[in-house]
Design a protein around this nucleic acid. Structure first.
Lengths: 186, 186
DNA sequence: GGCGTTTGCCAACAGTTGTTGGCCTACACT
DNA sequence: AGTGTAGGCCAACAACTGTTGGCAAACGCC
């Protein structure tokens, strides 16, 4: 039952193929057989190593946003820093794939949605909303704008948003996020 | 082949059940059999009336945003008006369901994503971006914020966003949309 | 009232899904 | 060198998918 060093290579290949397929096709369309074929291995091994398709999915969406510490940046540049960091995650090969998997799945799968809420609470809200009373609300407004761009740019591929380069996008979105973090709310 | 008055009732029942199922489960999980059962009818009739599952889906996501005419409202209240109108659509029983169907499906189904882009281009961009050069970009930024809230509030059900009442949400989001529509961009 | 069209159901199809058990091979340890 | 254990593949399973064809009944029209 315990994993040995010899099998690590296969496990990693399966996990990489799973992330690629889950990201490209979503949870339901991504089949165990296709993932196994991409990894050059038998479908039954996937089940043997990860228990079930759901277990494989859980292993594939282990995400760490590595958010910067708000105390470490000037207060008036928090918006810019957060937007740039977030877009950097999505543009990156590895983390962007994991985030695509998570968002795609969270939209149609309640378990994945729960995981998304957990990521928000333990990472986003924790980083932005520890101090003030309305912190969680501010963090959620930030999330709504950032997830919205991610949705339009990387999932729906809305042409005008895809056409913008990252720095322009940062410049356009930073004031919004800055206001959600700092300015008084209604 | 042509539809008669007698079958209209069944057609409507199927369409209503389809919207409910597609909204709740997404395109892939919603089965023709389940939709037929909800409508109290045989699965084969669904295919007979709508040709295929995809045809049924296409009929279920025929959406009209009924966006207000920007020329008819004061320029400095455009943001508020658009946010309120958009949230009103989602809160409404009928259109909210159709929008849920469309967004849920567009995230995992390329055909639905294409339909979403078409809705954006023909309705949102047409309403907001007919005048200026960077109109489509501004319209897309608006869409990113509005789709982001919809995602967090109605799909992912992020607690802090769900907790806000509509008017508070309007007050918080209106300045953002107002800036995307009117203020100079980078 | 008789006839053709339409509504609707039943049964079945062909394909795909996640998952399981059995068997052979190759490594690791003594 | 011998043996136990883990890696890996093949074949098969049971369930479920969208879809099709055939047949009974109800309707509309003359």
């Amino acid at each position: 039952m315990a994993f040995t060093a010899r099998s690590q290579e296969s496990r990693a290949a399966i996990l990489a193929a799973a992330r690629r397929r889950f990201a490209a096709d979503g949870y339901e369309r991504a089949t165990v057989r296709a993932i196994a074929a991409d990894a050059g291995i038998d479908p039954s091994m996937v089940i043997r190593y990860y228990g079930s398709k759901e277990g494989l999915f859980a292993a594939a969406v282990d995400v760490d946003l590595r958010l910067p510490d708000p105390a470490a940046v000037p207060a008036d540049r928090l918006g810019e820093v957060f937007v740039r960091h977030f877009l950097g995650l999505w543009e990156g090969e590895g983390p962007g794939e994991v985030l695509t998997v998570l968002l795609r799945a969270a939209v149609t799968n309640e378990g994945a949605a729960e995981r998304m809420r957990a990521v928000f609470a333990s990472q986003v809200a924790a980083a932005l909303g520890s101090s003030t009373e309305d912190g969680p609300t501010r963090a959620a407004l930030v999330a709504s704008q950032l997830l919205g761009v991610a949705l339009c740019r990387y999932i729906l591929r809305l042409p005008p948003i895809v056409a913008l380069d990252v720095e322009t996008l940062v410049a356009d979105l930073a004031p919004t996020v800055q206001r959600y973090i700092g300015a008084p709310l209604a």
